[in-house]
């Protein structure tokens, strides 16, 4: 059997490094280059307060990007995360401000609402066989409309719930280490990322994310209840979107029903820059996190350099195309 290549057993560590290296190194290197470039261009950039501002700006988009990553790895897409985030915030407003319940119920409501919305999307995709693009496009509009209906198109403020704004703006770390006042929003982002990465790489749910994206028919033929797992994955993504809803409501100290559209595209952009394949089967949470950071650094850096906001948008678009092109080139070479 001359074809048999000798299998050299590799250590788990080296395999983990090898698995995602190319994908992420590129994004990570770009991030470092951006950071260095902006610090040279402007002395104001590399200051603790500015760094914290970047992290704070990343938190909402980062959490959304993590949610979308899960769905994209299954070979799907979720266009509804932006308006779903708003919907979760509005429901929290209903629970806390309209009903006057304690804060913990508002938090539970946000996460639960997200999970239910996600499960709905998942059901449309799995049971009714509607393409994810269409199913979540529909959800996007439904949730946008519902947010406006429930709130009567007016923002819901959280002035009656003291401490709600602390969810995002406060700093638990800052209380322990005053020199490093990392906002809670950022802390939550990293916790969500760590948990999502664990789920993705160490649990059955995560395994089926990759398996579905890799070859769904084959998973089905192996006797796996693919519908159920797909719904579960969309629901998990929804629950994470609920957390993003809490973060943004807390940051604005209000649920803004008109907000939300456009966030889904920024989240997808972050995922793509982070090297997750839109055709499914491959992707990492760390990559999406770096992608979200790149977008925030870019926006912030260009602002610090006094580049007009309009141009920031143009640059972001160009970066997305470049990132995907670089990834395609790399893949072509390796295959």
């Amino acid at each position: 059997m001359t074809t048999t290549t000798v299998d050299v057993p590799k250590s788990t560590l080296s395999r983990i490094i090898a698995a995602g290296t190319h994908q992420r190194v590129l994004a990570f290197a770009s991030l470092i280059i951006l950071l260095i470039g902006f610090s040279i261009a402007s002395p104001n950039f590399m200051q603790t307060s500015n760094m914290l501002a970047i992290l704070q700006a990343t938190s909402v988009n980062g959490v959304l990007a993590i949610a979308v990553t899960l769905v994209i790895i299954t070979g799907g897409i979720d266009l509804s995360v932006g308006t779903m985030m708003t919907f979760c915030a509005v429901i929290t407003g209903v629970v806390l401000t309209y009903a006057g319940m304690p804060m913990i119920f508002g938090i539970i409501a946000a996460v639960l609402t997200g999970a239910i919305c996600g499960a709905c999307s998942g059901t449309f995709v799995a049971k009714m066989a509607i393409p994810p693009f269409i199913a979540t496009l529909g959800m996007m509009l439904i949730l946008k409309g519902l947010s406006l209906v429930i709130s009567g198109t007016r923002p819901i403020y959280f002035n009656d719930t003291p401490g709600f704004s602390e969810i995002s703006r406060g700093s638990l770390i800052g209380e322990v280490m005053p020199a490093l006042p990392i906002p809670n929003g950022v802390l939550i982002l990293f916790i969500v990322a760590a948990v999502a990465a664990y789920i993705l790489n160490r649990t059955v749910l995560g395994r089926y994310c990759f398996a579905l994206g890799s070859n769904e028919e084959s998973v089905r033929l192996s006797g796996v209840n693919t519908d159920r797992w797909k719904i579960a994955i969309y629901a998990l993504a929804g629950a994470i979107v609920g957390i993003a809803g809490l973060l943004i409501a807390s940051r604005l100290n209000s649920a803004q029903p008109a907000l939300g559209l456009g966030y889904e595209l920024e989240a997808i952009a972050a995922v793509v820059i982070g090297g997750t394949s839109l055709s499914g089967g491959r992707g990492t949470i760390l990559g999406s996190l770096i992608g979200a950071l790149i977008m925030a650094v870019l926006t912030n850096g260009l602002r610090v350099m006094s580049v007009a906001q309009e141009w920031q948008t143009v640059v972001t678009g160009a970066i997305i195309i470049l990132a995907v092109y670089a990834d395609m080139m790399r893949r072509k070479k390796s295959s």
Partner: peptide
């Protein structure tokens, strides 16, 4: 036809 999941 081979029905494996290539990414796994």
């Amino acid at each position: 036809e081979l029905s494996l999941m290539n990414d796994l």
